[in-house]
Amino acid sequence: MAAHPNPSTADRRARIEEMRRAEKARERRNRIITITLSTVVVAGLVGFGAYVLDKESDEKAQEVASAKAPIRDEKSWDPKKLGRNHPTTPVSYPMKPPVGGDHHPVWMNCDGDVYKKPIRNENAVHSLEHGAVWVTYNGKAPAAEVKKLEEKVGKTPYTLMSPVEDQAGAIMLSAWGKQVTVDGADDPRVNQFFTKYVQGPQTPEPGAACTGGTGQQ
């Protein structure tokens, strides 16, 4: 006659089996959750990457469009009529600040250099020949606007900034053969001018140094 399992033993086996089934069910749920979360994270990263690339592409397109668009109230001079000789004597310029012409053999350092005192026109014009943008201001320019422009110039290679008290506008931007008077640091023409003319197509000597010149004021 076959022996029957002890009821308590059968109960323990049943509980163990039930625990095993529950554990396997938990493992399956955890795997599903892990896979789902991983999929969501990967999808999120891919989507974020696409968003960043799209944003960068849009910003680049805006920069290109800005560089091609005309700048409101900008003045231009024929580059063929702007001399490029290197005299060591003072030069008389027909515009103020000058946007080109004969200039000193040594350029003004223009690697984001901010000068608190007036600088020699002849040195600054040589910087323009190298593709720099020169930001100038007079006593009518609000101090807050001057500070913002100083910060922008300080972060931008191939730019320089200095006061020119007897200029016509409170804040003016000059490049070789180009000039515009702006309303303030947040005037959209500031970014447009920088984008268009820092080492822009007007540059007679693109890639020439903006360091190693003079910083004398």
Rank of each mutant, 00 (worst) to 15 (best):
3 A>G: 01
4 H>D: 05
8 S>V: 15
8 S>E: 13
9 T>R: 10
9 T>F: 03
10 A>P: 06
11 D>P: 00
18 E>Q: 10
19 M>N: 08
20 R>E: 03
20 R>I: 14
22 A>H: 02
22 A>G: 02
28 R>G: 04
29 R>C: 00
30 N>M: 05
31 R>P: 00
33 I>G: 02
37 L>P: 05
39 T>G: 15
40 V>N: 10
41 V>A: 11
41 V>Y: 12
42 V>I: 15
43 A>D: 02
45 L>P: 00
46 V>P: 00
46 V>L: 08
49 G>Q: 07
50 A>L: 04
50 A>I: 03
56 E>W: 08
63 E>L: 07
64 V>G: 02
64 V>K: 13
67 A>H: 04
68 K>L: 03
68 K>F: 00
71 I>T: 08
71 I>S: 04
72 R>W: 01
74 E>M: 06
74 E>V: 08
74 E>D: 00
74 E>F: 01
76 S>D: 01
76 S>W: 01
77 W>S: 12
77 W>H: 01
78 D>G: 03
79 P>A: 07
79 P>L: 09
80 K>G: 12
83 G>N: 11
87 P>F: 10
87 P>L: 13
88 T>L: 06
92 S>E: 04
94 P>H: 06
95 M>E: 04
99 V>A: 11
102 D>F: 05
107 W>K: 09
107 W>T: 05
111 D>V: 03
111 D>A: 12
114 V>L: 01
120 R>N: 12
121 N>P: 00
122 E>G: 06
122 E>M: 09
123 N>Y: 11
124 A>Q: 11
124 A>G: 04
125 V>Q: 05
125 V>R: 11
131 G>C: 07
132 A>P: 02
134 W>H: 13
135 V>M: 10
135 V>C: 05
137 Y>A: 09
139 G>H: 14
140 K>L: 12
142 P>W: 11
143 A>F: 07
143 A>T: 13
143 A>R: 15
147 K>L: 14
150 E>H: 10
150 E>G: 13
151 E>V: 10
151 E>F: 02
151 E>S: 13
152 K>C: 00
152 K>I: 14
154 G>I: 12
155 K>I: 10
156 T>G: 02
158 Y>M: 14
160 L>G: 01
161 M>E: 07
163 P>K: 11
165 E>M: 13
165 E>P: 10
167 Q>Y: 15
168 A>R: 14
172 M>F: 04
172 M>W: 06
173 L>E: 00
176 W>L: 09
176 W>T: 10
176 W>K: 07
179 Q>E: 06
179 Q>G: 02
180 V>K: 14
183 D>I: 06
183 D>T: 15
183 D>N: 12
189 R>I: 05
189 R>T: 09
191 N>Q: 15
192 Q>K: 11
193 F>P: 00
195 T>L: 02
195 T>S: 02
197 Y>M: 07
197 Y>Q: 08
201 P>T: 15
202 Q>K: 05
202 Q>V: 14
204 P>I: 13
205 E>M: 06
206 P>E: 10
209 A>N: 10
209 A>P: 09
210 C>N: 14
211 T>W: 07
211 T>V: 15
213 G>L: 05
213 G>H: 02
216 Q>C: 03
216 Q>Y: 07
216 Q>I: 08
